[in-house]
Design a binder for these strands. Sequence first.
DNA 1: AAGGATGACAACCGCGTCGGG
DNA 2: CCCCGACGCGGTTGTCATCCT
Length: 275
Amino acid sequence: MGRSPCCDKVGLKKGPWTPEEDQKLLAFIEEHGHGSWRALPAKAGLQRCGKSCRLRWTNYLRSDINRGKFSQQEEQTIIQLHALLGNRWSAIATHLPKRTDNEIKNYWNTHLKKRLAKMGIDPVTHKPKIDALLSNDGQTKNAANLSHVAQWESARLEAEARLVRESKLRSRSFQHQPSSMTTPGYIPGSGSGSGSPSTFSENAPPVMNSVPMTEFVISSFPDVTVSMEVPWNPESSRADNNSTVHAGNVMEEGFTHLLLCDSAERSLPEQWQGF
DNA sequence: AAGGATGACAACCGCGTCGGG
DNA sequence: CCCCGACGCGGTTGTCATCCT
């Protein structure tokens, strides 16, 4: 309950680690394991608090860390998982082997968040900003746009709720099975295209009625399928006759693809340029 | 060339949670 | 059941490098 007092002790070094300190920590852990982090600094001969040692080890010294540039696939995974999980960096990190939560968090804050903001997408919810859906005089270009945003939010929250349930199940069973195998009531869909869409049957009313459903499959989280009601009009994926913005269609095209474009001006669909 | 601005990333801080006594 | 130490997590800050004027 109380805060750890280890860092309050005077005489302990703070700030950047030196190569000598790294070597001491590395050598000690390789020989003895880290054991109790609190006791480790004294045993290893380090003038650091245990917390600092743990951070240095988990974020930098571990041998199973990839410190190279983030690949496009990794970027996409982060964006997709962040859309579902929010700022739960440790949870996101579990789906990115060799990457630490701190590294992912930093990368998000310095690269991806800015890219989202630049494109007029709320970095918190990943939905298009309301002001991006407004015309210059403040009127909505298309009332359906706001409806799509609400639907996206609804789908996102639903997926999040499911993840919470799965998390609880996983913590109980401690298994690494696809969650579709462990989540009661989950009915896997038949994938994109024809066939019945995936949905959430556990205590949930049918989400859809007559409107065709669109599935969002998270590629690095294949057991999660977000189904949402998004009327699909291939023509309006670019721009319809009224130059309206179809938030749902843009999402269907895969907003993560848009986010991966280095330059919004270069690769965005016409109606998104200039945001 | 100097120095201010900006970007990138490492590290710290403080809160919440867990588990043992 | 309560207390408290230990740890993990996410937000924030600090520091260094690079760019720009």
